[in-house]
Design a protein around this nucleic acid. Sequence first.
DNA 1: AACTTAAGTGAATAATTATTCACTTAAGAA
DNA 2: TTCTTAAGTGAATAATTATTCACTTAAGTT
Lengths: 200, 200
Amino acid sequence: MNNYSLKFAKVKPKDEKKTEHIFKATLQLVKDKGVAGITMGEIASAAKIATGTLYIYFKSKDELINALFTECRKASAEIYFKDYDASLPFKTGFKVIWLNLMKFRTEHFEKAVFMDQCYHSPFITETTKHITKEMMHPLYKLVERGKAEKIIKDADSFILLTFMVGGINEFVKHSKYSGKKITKELIEQMFNLCWDGLKA
Amino acid sequence: MNNYSLKFAKVKPKDEKKTEHIFKATLQLVKDKGVAGITMGEIASAAKIATGTLYIYFKSKDELINALFTECRKASAEIYFKDYDASLPFKTGFKVIWLNLMKFRTEHFEKAVFMDQCYHSPFITETTKHITKEMMHPLYKLVERGKAEKIIKDADSFILLTFMVGGINEFVKHSKYSGKKITKELIEQMFNLCWDGLKA
DNA sequence: AACTTAAGTGAATAATTATTCACTTAAGAA
DNA sequence: TTCTTAAGTGAATAATTATTCACTTAAGTT
């Protein structure tokens, strides 16, 4: 038995599911009341733990918010390029990614709201913000491929990208606010508008 | 001399410019630090008045935020239909409004951020939210005119509207974050993407 | 000029909320 | 079973922040 095992022996282990509960509770609260309306006490009770326990998992509110932000960013990055295969024809691959963006926004709406809300908050550090910006990079590559193949318009990449994403974000946001159901049919309509705009 | 004038005579009048200063200071702070990062003390000092003075103009933080929200909503509604004339050909009229939306987002960016941020906050009352939703009504009428004239696609109005607005919002938001300059040329490119998407 | 009244002030107070801590509980080792 | 250690608790404390208030200033009336 060495120092290492001595150091970590005789331990009541952390319940790893708690982090998940804390995150889930925080997302729910931010969706309902916004980032200005959440307290550590509320997060704790929504996660069904004591306030003190929250501080075993996160040193401070700051750290909790940043950790959750990072988690959300990872979740979105994982979805964006799921099932994308560069060897597919451009439009097919483009649609895969476009649908992934739509999927993330609809199925992880609280994460999207949380990221939007917290981006401007005093909690998120500059480093976290910087990494987030870099997430857009592969999407730039995508539209640049489309331009190179003369399939989509030869406009500024920034314009093409924000155009590609804007409709999705706006649609999902307003759907959730107004209770409008997001159907396959509506998604298809939105894709067509988007594609007709982009195509050369 | 009647009761009315008696009651209101011998008064040091409120400095009406102060409300404006308070609003401007609040918008600036929310843009920089988010709705979670503003305190009455900071608002007061940014507006160069004492904290107590703030409470002469607004009963509470709640009231201040709601009043500013209403002000922002009015400012946006005023711009949206500026110079629009229903007797113009559809595309011409559409472009006038589209450019107005773009103008509001770029020239009153802090207002747009403030409205986005506060919409989900505990400050905004349900009434305020409800009135805000109604603001979209004339824009619905616009896309429905386009559909009736068979100029734009016969898709769901909600889809058409969120599509019309999404690109603008996303573009301006990311421009401001990343420091990308918003030029006439880029605006024109965005309009073309948007129009090509919408047209029948 | 003297008077009245409300604006304006900022330190004091009241609420709210983040964080700590003395204590309890339970997992695993001996 | 006993022992050790960290998780878990929630009331107590520390910070922060909204709101008040006793006081000062200045506009307008007489």
